[in-house]
């Protein structure tokens, strides 16, 4: 039984391992719906210090390269606001999520 990044479908005992050994990654679990506020980076003000990237507990900010502003992965960002709070130049805004 291989490990996969996708949602794992289980019918019953016949496709389960003997013990509760995992078959997939939580990466399938998009946590975007947990969010009420959404961080938006103003790239014109961003100094590319990557402090927001560093402190995200959800690893939901992607590091592209040293000359590019980090990109928030809105599939996973839970909207905790740490990135906005920690940004030294205050270039991340927490904006109301449109639903």
């Amino acid at each position: 039984m291989k490990h996969s990044d996708k949602d794992v479908k289980i019918k019953g005992a016949s496709d389960m391992p003997e013990m509760p050994a995992s078959l997939g990654s939580m990466a399938h679990n998009k946590t975007a719906s947990w969010r009420n506020l959404k961080p938006v980076i103003d790239e014109s003000k961003c100094i590319k210090c990557f402090i927001c990237w560093k402190f995200c507990p959800d690893a939901a900010i992607d590091f592209i390269d040293e000359n590019t502003s980090p990109k928030i992965n809105y599939d996973y960002c839970k909207g905790c606001g740490i990135c906005a709070h920690e940004c030294p130049v205050k270039c991340i805004d927490m904006v109301e999520e449109e639903r």
Binding site: M1, H3, G12, A13, M16, E18, M19, P20, A21, S22
Partner: peptide, 25 residues
């Protein structure tokens, strides 16, 4: 299956009422 860095898995995670019985079966 065992704890193996070449086949990383978790063992014994939270099992919901949906699957617990099957493990006991």
């Amino acid at each position: 299956i065992k704890m193996d860095i070449n086949d990383p898995r978790s063992f014994g995670a939270l099992t919901s009422p949906d699957v617990y019985m099957e493990f006991r079966y």
